[in-house]
């Protein structure tokens, strides 16, 4: 009997692929994985619907219930609120990255992907890119909701789109943190439960819903300079027509800083996960 009577149909990388070819392979694999993750939202639209109901409730709650008690001198509260809502929405949404990866790990899909001749980076990148696409949809929806409750943007369209790009970049960076969480906890329920205690202080001890100077003195330094606040401050400045270069710098520094640390950690964790 000859050694191999069966010939594989795929490409055979006898020499390890390098350079540009390696990059295009990884990009193709990432696209395939991102497509499969997005199909999940298409097939189970409830997932997307329920994850957008929560931020809508926050808008209504803060706009019409708590808002009256929160003083934001010189700025209508809804204009103060909406940048906070955008950042909060992508922050909660990042949990989806953890839940998605934990589900795949649980079902043995990650194991299958690891046995395929695909780019190692594609499983994580495909997940975070799919979550980025989902965030684009959710942010567009939240902007519409904002306009419906009389949110006004005091700048031009391009500056506003730039602000939304900062929000999306922040969500993308957080997704990489949550990728590690999802691979560590390995089941979707735990991923959700483990995320909340970290998210709550990030979202509420921030400038998202109330001015930081209304908080006790010991909390103010954290609340002012933690990543979510920096993003909110930058976006709020742009949205109110008074952009601050320093705020935008801080926001971008946090986003790229988180990416630089979280992405390698997630990739390392992925190599070990089985």
């Amino acid at each position: 009997m000859t050694a191999t009577t069966v010939t594989p149909l795929g490409g055979l990388p006898d020499l390890d692929v390098h350079g540009l070819r390696r990059f295009t392979v990884a990009a193709g694999d990432t696209r395939a994985i991102a497509w499969r993750n997005l199909m999940g939202y298409v097939r189970i639209p409830q997932l997307l619907i329920f994850s957008t109901i929560q931020p809508v409730i926050f808008v209504l709650l803060f706009r019409y219930v708590f808002g009256g008690a929160i003083s934001t001198p010189g700025v209508p509260y809804v204009d103060f609120l909406m940048p906070g809502i955008f950042a909060q929405t992508v922050t909660f949404g990042a949990m989806g990255t953890a839940i998605g990866l934990a589900t795949d790990l649980n079902l043995g899909l990650i194991e299958r992907f690891r046995s395929l001749p695909m780019a190692r980076s594609a499983v994580l990148a495909g997940r975070t890119v799919a979550d980025l696409v989902r965030n684009v949809l959710v942010i567009v929806l939240m902007v519409v909701v904002g306009f419906l409750v009389s949110y006004r943007v005091h700048t031009n369209v391009f500056a506003f789109i730039g602000a939304m790009l900062i929000v999306l970049l922040f969500g993308f960076a957080l997704s990489w943190i949550y990728a590690t969480v999802g691979l560590l906890v390995k089941d979707p329920e735990t991923a959700q439960a483990a995320s909340f205690p970290v998210l709550a202080p990030l979202i509420f001890a921030s400038s998202a819903f109330v001015p930081v100077d209304s908080m006790p003195g010991w909390l103010q330094p954290f609340a002012e300079y933690q990543p979510l606040s920096c993003v909110v401050n930058a976006v709020r400045g742009i949205s109110l027509g008074s952009p601050s270069g320093f705020d935008i710098f801080l926001a971008l520094a946090w986003c790229f800083g988180i990416l630089a640390v979280a992405a390698p950690l997630a990739v390392r964790r992925y190599r070990m996960a089985a």
């Binding site: 594989p8 795929g10 490409g11 055979l12 990388p13 006898d14 390890d16 692929v17 499969r36 199909m39 999940g40 097939r43 189970i44 079902l107 043995g108 899909l109 194991e111 299958r112 046995s115 395929l116 001749p117």
Partner: peptide, 19 residues
């Protein structure tokens, strides 16, 4: 990478995308 191009794996968990 060369090994992965030549093998197939099916496990006890039926690892397919449910959606």
């Amino acid at each position: 990478e060369a090994v992965r191009a030549r093998i197939g794996l099916a496990g006890q968990y039926a690892a397919v995308d449910q959606n």
